[in-house]
Write a protein that binds this DNA or RNA. Structure first.
Lengths: 328, 328
DNA sequence: CTGAAAGCGCTTACAG
DNA sequence: CTGAAAGCGCTTACAG
């Protein structure tokens, strides 16, 4: 900038004014500055600007895995809103590791992000309190934070799960299985609750035999199916608590050439092309990302008066065939 | 940092030494500094550090769409390698818009990224020359840059496509269609070349009637299928030039209940669960991202002596059923 | 409308 | 092993 000023024969401050598009600059001087900028290939140094201004024009986005379709769609939605605010996005994958989450979150804070969107991996988030008090707003998505109060965007997991089970009940099923993630996972717990809600409303007693809660893996899913299908009164329908489990179940059913009424929680690509089409309770990751980003920028803009907000986003049942198979 | 120094009763420089993990600090002073850091909730300001050091510890990653599975897998691979180098990743989506690509790339440069990985959207990249000369290494992925020479990571599109067609030929097909993206797209051109290579080697004359080149959309794909299937000597097999087209073709075939031997370029999730399973020529986005990141960090580390490199990554044929349907 | 001076929070280069 | 001074490249606050 000093070089530009020298080359254009003006002061540093005038160059700064031109670079920042301030209006009160003489046209001739402006032209001279622009010429010098082009000639020297000048590009403003954002670090210096940030240091002086105190805000960085960046936000941090902490996901479980950038490569997972659910999070990558969420991520794109955040990017679009950030773009409207002239802000760039740092994205990082916690890989479900609490230490890595913490490390990334603090690295983002060291970079003085203007705000943070976090899909929690760990169960304790008090490490963020000093940062939040120092003025970095944080919005949690998908799961509530561990031991602090904060803004969050959640799916209506319980209601969605209930709707999925009610759908199976309405097609005559009475023995409905549930295979979900480990019970410590917030969403897994909520979805199991929705399953129980639906059974209870229908006057069907809850049975432990029909429920599996474990981290999703092809092996654990195959075991769970064994338990559901190989007993004296097998399940005729199944709610899968997450998309990884749904995919494992589909592979396992294809291998066994067994049919089973099936509703998956979370949509999977090409679900409509399977035979039968896959009925799902679909979350809306784009809407979640957009809601998180909007709330974050509202906080960044200074709206920090009220208490933490919780935004709940509905889950939609999409019937495509597998959930409409009638009970035998 | 000044506050920490005052609180610990040492100089700024000693705090700096502790924060940076330098070894030559007296244990008592170190302890006092660490205590002051904890008490004050101090976090080093990265902007100031970057300004002084001249490097930012960030890289920019410019994709077509962060939400596309191909790019999100590539993105995660870049993140992992960046992490090994203590570097954060800015990711942005060009949305296939040359202006937006330029705007994002220059915004990354203004933030003084240490390097840039770019999936080109536009056809001219000379706008990056000043930045490259100023010492920001740039690696292009998936497609070559427009009008400059630079490092790049490419898939063996031509060879992969050839292998896909040879696979169909080996199952007795002679009328093999090709539906690819618009001919301006580099990868589309290469894949058409591979298609021609395979036909030529088999002594089968190339026929324009069997080829469609257009931006993928459900409507254009349906039209292309009409042309291929409704004539006097219809195609018995098809190579789809990209995954969006593959999905449209699958939907269209399901609607018509027509069968056709099919090989898709690019894998799609759940392709193994379709009936028949989807045979594809699979790119390896993870390998591409990793190769790009490795080359970039090599350049950042100062290895800029040699000429630009091109790394070509193979495409693998994965037979799953659809490509093995025999010719009638 | 224009500019000179101070300072953002660090690290570098140097002295002791 | 420790510290005082200068400076990275901007913007802010102020004066003219």
């Amino acid at each position: 900038m000093k070089d530009v000023a020298a080359s254009a024969g003006v002061s540093l401050k005038t160059v700064s004014r031109v670079v920042n598009g301030e209006s009160n600059v003489n046209d001739d001087l402006r032209a001279a500055v622009l010429e010098a900028i082009a000639a020297l290939g000048f590009r403003r140094n954002a670090s210096a600007r940030e240091l002086r201004q105190g805000r960085s024009g960046t936000v941090g986005l902490l996901l479980e895995d950038v490569a997972d379709p659910f999070y990558s769609i969420l991520s794109r939605a955040v990017e679009e809103i950030a773009r409207d605010h002239g802000t760039m996005v740092f994205a990082g994958s916690s890989a479900e590791d609490a230490d890595r989450e913490r490390e990334l979150a603090l690295a983002f804070c060291e970079r003085r992000v203007d705000g943070l969107i976090v899909v929690p991996a760990g169960t304790s988030h008090s490490y963020l309190l000093p940062e939040m008090r120092a003025g970095i707003p944080v919005v949690f998505v998908d799961r509530p934070p561990g031991d602090i109060e904060a803004d969050m965007i959640l799916t209506d997991n319980r209601g969605g799960s209930r709707r999925g089970v009610e759908h199976l009940l309405s097609h005559g099923h009475r023995r409905i299985g549930f295979i979900g993630d480990a019970p410590e996972i917030y969403t897994a717990g909520e979805r199991l609750r929705g399953y129980r809600d639906a059974l209870e409303s229908a006057g069907i007693p809850f049975s432990d035999d029909l429920v599996t809660q474990a981290p999703p893996s092809p092996a654990s899913t195959a075991d769970a199916l064994d338990r559901l299908l190989d007993g004296p009164s097998p399940a005729t329908a199944l709610l899968c608590g997450n998309s990884r489990t749904t995919v494992s179940v589909l592979r396992e059913l294809a291998r066994r050439s067994t049919r089973l009424a099936l509703v998956g929680f979370d949509d999977v690509e090409l679900g409509d092309l399977l035979q039968p089409g896959l009925t799902v309770v679909a979350q809306d990751p784009g809407a979640m990302g957009a809601a998180a980003a909007r709330l974050l920028f509202q906080r960044i803009a200074g709206d920090t008066a009220g208490p933490p907000q919780t935004v709940t986003i509905g889950a939609r049942l999409i019937p495509r065939g597998s959930g409409e198979l009638p009970a035998p």
